[in-house]
Amino acid sequence: MISLAAKRRAVNAVASALMFAATCVGLFFLAWILWTTLRFGIAAMHWDLFLKDTPAPGDGGYGLRNAFVGSVILMCIALLIGVPVGLMAGTWLAEYGGRSRRARLVRFVNDIMLSAPSIEIGLFTYAVMVDPLGHFSAFSGGVALAILMVPIIVRTTDEMLRLVGAEMREAAIALGAPMWKVVTNITWKAARAGILTGILISLARISGETAPLLFTALNNQYYSTSLARPIANLPVVIFQFAMSPYDNWQQMAWAGAFIAITFILLLSVTSRLILQKSVKRP
């Protein structure tokens, strides 16, 4: 006959072991994914990746230059559209909207957009930009990525601005500063580390996005910087190359994945550092 205490201890020991095992499973898959990307990615590193364009099918060449350039262009468009929209909308929520019914509605919609599947954003951009214009374009790809960025920027801007003490605003208003000056010179400045972090995180989020680009920027085998035409980009090239039977294409897919992950990890480490530094400051 086992005593109740012994039974409870045994159950606890088993449960604790399972929780530890669960953590190990999570860490194991992280290590596995990072390790394979690192191993295959570094093995596939070659200067030609940055100097030559994507080769034709069956051609043994090496190169991702057009995809890198295309991805940078797409990210720039997304930043140029997404940052002002997200920043201003977040500012309205924190500075004007407050806890009003309208602000709560905008926050609710934004929360849903925050976790909306990216394929839906891609289809939306296709429906409003690609379909009416009749052709895929780099610009529509940038817009799709911007739509994915905005909710993240809105949320962080809103949260960070609301952390700024009311006394700072009141002091500025008491000195006769108009509201726009209070916001741009006082509260934006006080919350700039948090806002910047949000922008970096949103950039990290979109830099690996593939699904929305399939319906908008598509892909381009050649080097192109035209905003009105389809453009090569890293995620879609990885998708196409990984599915292909060619060895050199698969290697390039790993090289692309490695570079994408490195970029994303650098962004998230930078944003963490910025945030930590600003938190430590009294």
Binding site: L27, A242, L265
Partner: peptide, 22 residues
């Protein structure tokens, strides 16, 4: 451990696909 698990969310889905397939 928290940061490592969160890193799983930073890995883009295309990399999950690549790793999953190959």
């Amino acid at each position: 451990v928290s940061a490592a698990i969160e890193m799983l969310a930073a890995v883009p889905s295309i990399v999950y696909g690549l790793w999953g397939l190959l």
